[in-house]
Nucleic acid binder design. Structure first.
Length: 868
RNA sequence: GGGGGAUUAGCUCAGCUGGCUAGAGCGCUUCCAUGGCAUGGAAGAGGUCAUCGGUUCGAAUCCGAUAUUCUCCA
């Protein structure tokens, strides 16, 4: 049966919609507020809070296709992608969920119905697995699932799986449970006849593969390792979209489906090769076709390539693709960015965020390619200095310090018949890793429940104090520093999010004051970071936010909205927020724009914002607005931001600034007082950064300048025009320096002439041995060089008094130097003894300094003897 | 967050273990040659060697701190 990939995806969503599921959009690829994960790596990530009980699900039945990214983990490593025919960095995961609603029965029946009836996959090629039990966890075989399968599948197609394959866990701790997988055998009939597919399930055969995993979440794993049953049971399923397409379209590789093939043909055409002709070029084509997806979607979700964290992963993925193109397809110029439009069109209807930002993504990719190609070029130059045997340290330095990939080093070495010490390289790498690990070690303890409570409530939009209770706490150990995390039933503390920093403040518990050093979100949980636990953990807590700090943050945050709107007015609608930081000192706003802003543009933006401040526009805050309605109001939603069903809308003048935002804001813009832009700079290709200060910060900033100017003015005796005055001063200084230089030169010349007149001809040499007084060592040098230019048979010894310090200089003429009878360096060393000093230099010119000024006379005497 | 590197003329860079009065190519200015030019020739301007401190007779070079930037690891 033939179906294209778009149809396959659509049928999945339609199927579950018909079974009462709500179809939701994919969450962004890049995660915020989750310390345990950098990227969405499976469909369930966006529902984590539902499983953890921290959030109420939007609907009890949900289905979607989710963008996922995997670059490391037990089954996945970036370096494997492209080598085989089934690993990917970015992939789509189709999934259906039940939150305390249906369980194994429906999940199993529907999965089977979809695969065999809608997709018409052959039943005689399908196998299912069920959890076979585990002694360590004291769990039996999942008989419930097995019975349900028996209703549709022959007994001999139902297999038992180990804990590794059939018991799913979110992480070290948290919700988990047994799972049931559906596998398909895609081998040709003659091979199936030789060996039954059931023997190849879960044995890494590229054509006997898992296509769907149905997870039945029924336990919670504690940090101690023990399991406790969950009150609500959930279903979490995930089906790899690309693999499903392969199965339905009857291909033997994910890359042969219409998900990848058009892209690969495009790459092959421009690389002047044919896919399938050569294993090396095939790998390169797959790598590029795969990686551009991960990179493009990460960027469209707001993650720029960078040198830390998630951004670094994106950089690595892009660089790997460039590397393969460079080495095997001879792409010496940026090429990857040209794939972006193809991808944008292909997935326009599924993930519109890329299509909407196509130009921006292209630009970022292009710039990143250029910079990496430059890195490669520098590395290639460096390799030219190596020879035959490249040591592990050399290869590692090239990689670690200069970013030159190891496989390129060994490739080049192979081409030239050189050798590379790979073992040595790996050893250096291991050292680097252990250094970093030692630094990053962190231990997180189990949550200790103090009191039961619903989802903690944030009341900080309206209140800055509250009377609360501690719900739970835990210990976190990081770099020998012990901190505690507290969760309150309700809190006025704002948790870091949307760029605004977390609140600090004090918790008062039974007379004890506990400092809150930071407040952060962990998924939807508001976590207060404190340095110690209160003695009376169950007593009521008075929570007091640090008000002055918070107010400044509010001022900066509201100003950010005004700035955003003003930028769109001045520069155009292509301006989109790409990041922001708001604290009590400064606001930083990153946005997409392709050129540096002119001073005129900056001042227009500043003027608009300050006008809006003076208009003292009242804050219009709407909570719980349905997202569709908010968008209809013209609210700016950000790419890469995860929004719930209901959102908060912040408006300052409906015709000026309407934004979806969870941050805290001033009651009216007048409270901002003043906004002053401090700097405008570039962060990446197509992204500019503005830093600004407001309120007290702006006043201090401008006052600082004012005071500085006052000081300068008074230093200059209060001229009418300070700027002109400074300019004149600088010009005069330069002119004076020139004059002084000329005078020094003249002085030196005079001394030189005097000395030249005292030349004594002796043994065919022009001898000058004199005591002089000069202002600087440089002057002494100049005189010596001038005399060398005058006499090619010169032997010069000068004993100088330079501002009370003895100095000796010896200079030889060209001929004397060539004769090699005298050596200035040796001579000066001998003479330096007389002034308690040391020195040296080149064969024809050397200097020495010392401490004993009275010794200068002896220097003359000794020098006279030396040249005899 | 931790490690390594870089910062020299407007631009791209050289300057080895401290010591040729800090260089090259491109660009710039002036002049000469040709009908024209990414033309050829000649002369010239342009540098607090990132900043601050230290070691030394002497620091672009060695050491420390700061700033900026590249890069690897987490």
């Amino acid at each position: 049966m033939h179906m294209n990939s778009a149809t396959i995806r659509q049928k999945f969503l339609e199927f579950f919609e018909s079974k009462g599921h709500k179809i939701v959009p994919s969450a962004p690829l890049v995660l915020k507020n989750d310390p345990s994960l950098l990227f969405t790596n499976s469909g369930m990530v966006q529902f984590k809070d539902n499983f953890l009980g921290n959030a109420v699900p939007k609907s009890k039945r949900v289905a979607d296709t989710q963008k996922c990214l995997r670059v490391s983990g037990k089954h996945n490593d970036l370096e494997d992608v492209g080598l085989d025919t089934y690993h990917h960095t970015m992939f789509e995961m189709l999934g259906n969920w039940s939150f305390g609603d249906y369980f194994k029965k429906e999940a199993i029946a529907w999965a089977w119905e979809l695969l065999t009836e809608v997709y018409q996959l052959p039943k005689d090629r399908l196998y299912v697995t069920v959890f076979g039990g585990d002694k360590g966890d004291n769990l039996p075989v999942d008989e419930e699932a097995k019975d349900l399968w028996r209703a549709v599948v022959a007994e001999d197609r139902i297999l038992h799986g180990s804990k590794k394959d059939n018991f799913w866990e979110m992480g070290e701790s948290g919700p988990c449970g047994p799972c049931s997988e559906i596998h398909i055998d895609l081998r040709p009939a003659e091979e199936v006849a030789k060996k039954p597919g059931r023997e190849l399930v879960n044995s890494d055969h590229p054509q006997v593969v898992e296509i769907w995993n149905l997870v039945f979440i029924q336990f919670n794993r504690l940090a101690s390792g023990a399991l406790e049953p969950l009150p609500d049971k959930h279903v979490d399923t995930g089906m790899g979209f690309e693999r499903l397409c392969m199965a339905i379209q009857g291909k033997t590789s994910n890359y042969d489906t219409d998900v990848f093939r058009p892209m690969m043909d495009f790459i092959a055409m421009h690389g002047n090769v044919k896919y399938g002709d050569n294993i090396k070029t095939d790998i390169a084509i797959r790598v590029m076709a795969d990686h551009i997806r991960a990179v493009s979607f990460a960027i469209s979700d707001g993650q720029l390539p960078s040198n830390t964290g998630a951004g670094y992963v994106i950089r690595r993925i892009l660089r790997r693709a460039v590397r393969y193109g460079f080495s095997y397809l001879n792409f010496k110029e940026p090429f990857m960015h040209r794939l972006v439009p193809l991808l944008a069109i292909q997935l326009k209807d599924v993930f519109p965020e890329l299509h909407q930002q196509q130009e921006y993504v292209e630009k970022v990719v292009h710039e990143e390619e250029i910079s990496f190609l430059r890195t490669l070029e520098k590395g290639l130059k460096r390799i030219e200095n190596f020879d035959k045997v490249i040591s592990g340290e050399q290869a590692f330095e090239l990689y670690d310090t200069f970013g030159f990939p190891f496989d390129l080093t060994s490739l080049i070495a192979r081409e030239r018949g050189w050798s590379v010490d790979e073992k040595g390289f790996n050893e250096e790498m291991a050292k680097q890793k252990s250094r970093s690990k030692a630094d990053a070690s962190k231990e997180t303890g189990d949550w200790v429940t103090v009191a039961e409570g619903d989802k903690p409530e944030f009341i900080g939009y309206d209140e800055l104090t509250s009377t609360s209770r501690i719900l739970r706490h835990r210990k976190v150990k990081q770099k020998n520093k012990e901190l505690f995390q507290l969760v309150l039933d309700k809190t006025p503390f704002y948790a870091e999010s949307g760029g605004q920093v977390g609140d600090t403040g004090v918790l008062e518990i039974a007379g004890e004051k506990i400092q809150v050093v930071d407040t952060k979100k962990e998924n939807d949980l508001i976590v207060h970071w404190v340095e110690k636990l209160p003695a009376q953990i169950e007593a009521p807590v008075t929570a007091l936010v640090n008000v002055p700090k918070r107010k400044l943050s509010m001022s900066n945050h509201s100003a950010t909205h005004l700035l955003h709107a003003a930028l769109r007015q001045v520069l155009g609608k292509h301006v989109e927020q790409k990041g922001s930081l708001v604290n009590d000192k400064i606001l930083r706003f990153d946005f997409s724009h392709f050129a540096a802003m002119t001073n005129e543009e900056l001042s227009r933006v500043e003027t608009i914002v300050n006008e809006k401040i003076r208009e003292n526009i009242q804050l219009d805050e709407k909570r719980h607005v349905p997202i569709e309605k908010a968008k209809a109001l013209g609210a700016m939603a950000l790419f890469g931001e995860k929004y719930g069903e209901f959102v908060r809308v912040i408006t300052f003048d409906p015709s000026f600034s309407v934004e979806l935002c969870g941050g805290t804001h001033v009651k009216a813009t007048g409270q901002i007082g003043l906004l002053k832009i401090v700097s405008e700079s570039s962060v990446a290709a197509g992204v500019r950064r503005i830093e600004a200060v407001t309120a007290d910060g702006a006043f201090e900033y401008l006052n600082g300048f004012y005071n500085q100017l006052e000081q300068i003015k008074s230093q200059l005796k209060n001229p009418k025009d300070v700027v002109a005055s400074v300019q004149t001063l600088a010009e005069e200084k330069q002119a004076l320096e020139k004059k002084l230089e000329i005078i020094y030169q003249q002085q030196a010349n005079q001394i030189k002439d005097v000395l030249a007149a005292k030349v004594v001809k002796s043994n065919g040499h022009s001898l000058i041995i004199e005591r002089v007084t000069v202002p600087t060592a440089d002057g002494l040098k100049n005189i010596a060089y001038a005399l060398r230019n005058q006499f090619d048979d010169l032997i010069l010894v000068l004993a100088a008094d330079i501002e009370g310090k003895p100095q000796v200089a010896v200079m030889l003429g060209e001929k004397v130097e060539a004769a090699k009878k005298f050596h200035a360096g040796n001579m000066v060393k001998e003479l330096a003894k007389e002034i308690d000093g040391g020195g040296g230099g080149q064969p024809f010119f050397a200097t020495a300094g010392g401490k004993k000024l009275e010794g200068l006379g002896n220097v003359i005497v000794k020098a006279t003897e030396l040249v005899k």
